[in-house]
Design a protein around this nucleic acid. Structure first.
Length: 868
RNA sequence: GGGCCCGUGGUCUAGCCGGUUAUGACAUCGCCUUUACACGGCGGGGGUCAUGAGUUCGAAUCUCAUCGGGCCCA
């Protein structure tokens, strides 16, 4: 087999991508013999761009999926698409130059669908290029009836459980998107606003929202504030509007803020809502759904909020109410989609009751990776005040399956067997209790988190003929959506099935640009995975993902990491090419059937195989702990430092030599190592590993088993001897280098004063005669210093340790060295004689040559004499 | 204001339930074309492990404080 000199990923990667039979990654619903490993893959929003952040997360998922499959699990790595939502609506409006109200509802939804289908296609292509082992037989698309009927059925089920209700309640409202949004969708940003001081009846208040004067329903003071406590119970007149409001006392009022008097409006902020509820205040709606002032704002009616604010401030000044203005830094809640400041409006909405105890209980059963991410969920659940508002006033989303009877107003929630259903297009198939068959459709739609919070249920086979497989094994996701997707999924899984959705959650970090900042178009630091594939390779990108940082931490994208990844593949390829040139006519089946003849292996072979088995052990452990960076670094270290830089150099003479037994031992070792490495690399570099494995094995590497540690090959003696040979070869190489000699130049003789059974590879590697000599050489080792071994002395002598160290420093090294030979060291500590074990110290010796024309190398205390 | 994470050579990073000379990558400098690889090999320089205090025989590692950075929330 001829292996090309250079590895060209632009040929190899498309070759495998196009020839792989993806059915090898399918989950087997019927198989009960293998343990299941179901991944609750995040369904990305189909923007048409599978970006680098997605890619990092998917690399992690793919590492796990491929690893678990090789370990014998029945793995499901499904792929979903979370289609519904505002961005698509906005994009459609932009693309066609329309607004959603200008075309029929169904037409608008069709446009959204089409855009989404095209976007999914683009993202799928990137995913295939990145080599993900997606199970496409378990793909789901939330806008398809098959999926959203499940969303609707979940609505019905939770309605029947009494966990869903409709109510007029204050909600966060985005005036631009004209929809209610959940708290999870509110982002905060600090902005400078003006704090306005107003004469307010006999009182003085400070407010940042003078435009809400029309909505003022009370004035509050702290009852312990002596300046104002007498006013509690009285009424004051609202400036400009003239209506009378009560003065109430509430401990939540901060006497130190502003004047210590605050006006309560319906609603300026969340605190207003709390007061409104606690004190049973009336409701005055001054802002409508479009963000315009209502009738109660009198002459300001119809104005936008900022216009109204300006006009009212102007009038307050004119009328002499406003006596001071101070700038104030304030955190403003904004819509996460469009950054418009949100308002709190009271509207009739659908809500899901939140049971935080239930969520906490499930969260405690789930293994969080990294563990500290759990705190984020706990903090969120601990501060929830309102239920989850699930209705939205948009179009492209799952319809709320509800009608209202026109006669008696009764709510008719669709039955499960009517679903999927769009109440705006269909009439209920039965009449109302009151006998009427005239209904009004619910036009609101569901929050998209209602779709995506049942992914775990969906992939587990919920509402199908398959056996239910909940809990799934792994939820991989970003830390930015812990309070949304993770929270809602747990809530829904517990409510509907009474089970935790997953055994473990693996939280990935965000990808930062080369400059250390979050990737964003405005900073111009965005890199697409397709770019990386084009310039380097998918495997190199995947290696960056593996090695760039431990899961959970934010990872910087750096081109040089991709470059060094490509270099590793170049190196590995070169090793592979070298190995294959020696394995051409090699019949590895002999070894396969009868097992390796260990006795035929040389020390260096056993040293390598011992290290290989240790590698397998450590990589397996890292993979089990989702420590991909550790795993890959270990593979890289073994390959480069042990296999390439040392083993191959040491066995070259055997491989090119005449001794068949020695040659075969090296070939066997190379074969086993290449085989194991291709399997270890398979989860990380599926293309490269496949190419490698195709040269030595049958079938795809991705259906092979994960290598197992062969304990009998782990041999500390072989490791020590092998290490020694490696060190001798290395030292001699360095010696030649230092003395300006060619590295293959022969030396007259090398004398090793120690024990070594097999000198074959030392001979080969040094290209010089080697003699093993028992006993001491004709030069002296002079002990020059004694180094205390703190790891032994510390725990043993505790408080005395320091005194012993000092005492040892005083002693004559020669005396200590002599005592070590006798097995007991005595040392005088503060006048007392103490006995120490020899392992308490290390004696450093200096070699003094006895007049021969030689150079002496000291290798781990063993003298090696070089005769030139 | 509260919570979480982090601060290690020029840059990024490992180590962090205390114990040899603090890991590796990139960068840098010197030497080397040796029959897998110059996208390579060998070697060198470069760190008060943010600062200060404490616990301890011993601290990058544990505790507290300070400073700085990031994230989540109010």
């Amino acid at each position: 087999m001829t292996v090309p000199k250079e590895y060209d990923p632009h040929i190899i990667e498309p070759k495998w991508r196009d020839s792989w039979n993806m059915s090898m990654y399918h989950f087997d619903w019927k198989d009960k013999s293998r343990p299941q490993f179901i991944i609750d893959t995040p369904p990305p929003y189909p923007t048409g761009n599978f970006h680098i952040g997605n890619s990092l997360n998917w690399c992690y998922i793919d590492f796990v999926a491929r690893y678990k499959r090789m370990c014998g699990y029945n793995v499901m790595f499904p792929q979903g698409w979370d289609c519904h939502g505002l961005p698509t609506e906005v994009k459609v409006e932009e693309t066609y130059g329309i607004t959603k109200n200008e075309v029929p509802r169904e037409e608008f939804r069709r446009m959204c669908r089409e855009l989404t289908i095209g976007n999914i296609e683009k993202m799928r292509s990137t995913m295939l290029n990145l080599g993900f082992s997606t199970d496409w037989s378990n793909e789901f698309v939330t806008m398809e009836p098959e999926y959203y009927s499940k969303t609707q059925r979940s609505f019905r089920k939770m309605y029947d459980m009494g966990r869903l209700y409709q109510s007029e309640h204050p909600v966060n409202w985005c005036p631009r998107c004209e929809t209610a949004i959940a708290f999870a969708e509110v982002e905060y940003d600090s902005r400078e606003t003006m704090l306005n001081y107003l004469h307010f009846g006999d009182l003085e208040i400070a407010t940042t929202r003078p435009e809400l004067l029309a909505a003022c329903v009370a004035v509050a003071i702290n009852p312990e504030d002596e300046r104002y406590c007498a006013y509690v119970g009285s009424t004051v007149k609202v400036p400009l509007f003239g209506h009378e409001v009560k003065v109430i006392g509430d401990m939540a009022v901060d006497p130190g803020f502003g004047t210590g008097v605050v006006m309560i409006c319906t609603f300026g902020d969340k605190q207003d809502v709390r007061w409104w509820v606690e004190h049973g205040l009336p409701l005055r709606k001054a802002i409508d759904k479009n963000g315009l002032m209502t009738e109660i704002a009198g002459k300001y009616a119809g104005m936008t909020i900022p216009d109204c604010k300006r006009a009212i401030v102007e009038d307050l000044k004119k009328e002499g109410y406003l006596f001071e203005q101070k700038p104030l830094d304030q955190n403003v809640g904004m819509c996460w989609r469009c950054d418009t400041p949100i308002e709190i409006l009271s509207e009739r909405q659908w809500f899901i009751k939140i049971d935080t105890d239930e969520v906490s209980k499930a969260s405690n059963e789930i293994k969080w990776l990294p563990e500290y991410m759990k705190v984020r969920l706990d903090n969120w659940t601990g501060t929830m005040e309102w239920d989850w508002c699930i209705s939205r006033q948009r179009l492209f989303a799952t319809p709320i399956p509800v009608w209202y009877c026109k006669h008696c107003g009764e709510v008719m929630v669709a039955k499960e067997d009517w679903m999927p259903v769009d109440p705006t297009q269909q009439e209920p198939p039965q009449t109302c209790k009151c006998g009427s068959s005239e209904f009004e459709a619910e036009e609101d739609v569901l929050d998209t988190w209602m779709d995506s919070s049942i992914t775990a249920l969906h992939v587990s086979g919920w509402l199908t003929d398959h056996e239910m497989r909940l809990p799934t094994q792994l939820r991989p996701q970003g830390h930015d959506i812990i309070r949304t997707w993770a929270f809602y999924t747990i809530l829904r899984s517990m409510a509907i099935q009474g089970k935790r959705p997953w055994d473990a959650i693996l939280v990935n970090g965000m990808v930062l640009g080369q400059d250390g900042h979050k990737m964003s178009k405005s900073l111009g630091n965005v890199i697409s995975p397709e770019e990386v594939i084009k310039d380097y390779s998918a495997d190199a990108f995947r290696q960056w993902a593996a090695i760039g940082g431990s899961p959970g931490s934010d990872v910087m994208f750096r081109w040089k990491d991709v470059v060094s990844a490509s270099r590793f593949f170049a190196k590995m390829w070169s090793i592979y090419r070298f190995s294959m040139s020696h394995l051409e006519d090699y019949e590895h089946d002999d070894y396969k059937h009868s097992g390796p003849d260990i006795s035929g292996l040389k020390i260096v072979d056993r040293w390598l195989l011992s290290n290989l088995n240790r590698l397998i052990g450590s990589v397996t452990m890292s993979m089990d702990n989702y420590q991909f960076d550790e795993a890959f670094k270990a593979i890289r270290g073994f390959t480069w430092d042990i296999l390439a830089d040392n083993y191959i150099e040491l066995v070259k003479s055997r491989l090119y030599g005449e001794d068949e037994a020695g040659k075969n031992a090296a070939r066997y070792t190379l074969y086993v190592t290449i085989d194991a490495l291709s399997r270890l690399l398979a989860p990380f570099a599926p293309f490269f590993a496949e190419e490698m494995f195709s040269g030595i094995g049958n079938g795809s590497v991705h259906v092979q088993s994960w290598p197992k540690v062969n304990g009998s090959m782990i041999d500390a003696d072989a490791e020590a001897s092998g290490e020694f040979i490696k060190d001798v070869a290395g030292s001699v190489r360095r010696y030649k280098s230092d003395h300006g000699m060619a590295l293959n130049a022969p030396l007259e003789k090398i004398e090793i004063y120690g024990t070594l059974d097999d000198i074959t590879d030392v001979l080969g590697a040094t290209n010089s005669p080697v003699e093993i000599i028992a006993g001491e050489p004709d030069f002296e080792h002079v002990p020059v210093s004694v180094k205390p071994n703190m790891g032994v002395i510390g725990p043993k002598f505790r408080g005395q340790a320091k005194a012993i160290i000092n005492a040892l420093a005083e002693e004559n090294p020669k005396k200590i060295a002599d005592e070590i030979v006798n097995g007991r060291i005595t040392v005088s500590v503060n006048g007392d004689m103490l006995e120490l074990d020899p392992d308490c110290v290390e004696v450093e010796k200096e070699v003094v040559s006895a007049g021969r024309a030689v150079d002496v190398l000291d290798i781990n205390g063993i003298p090696v004499v070089i005769v030139r």
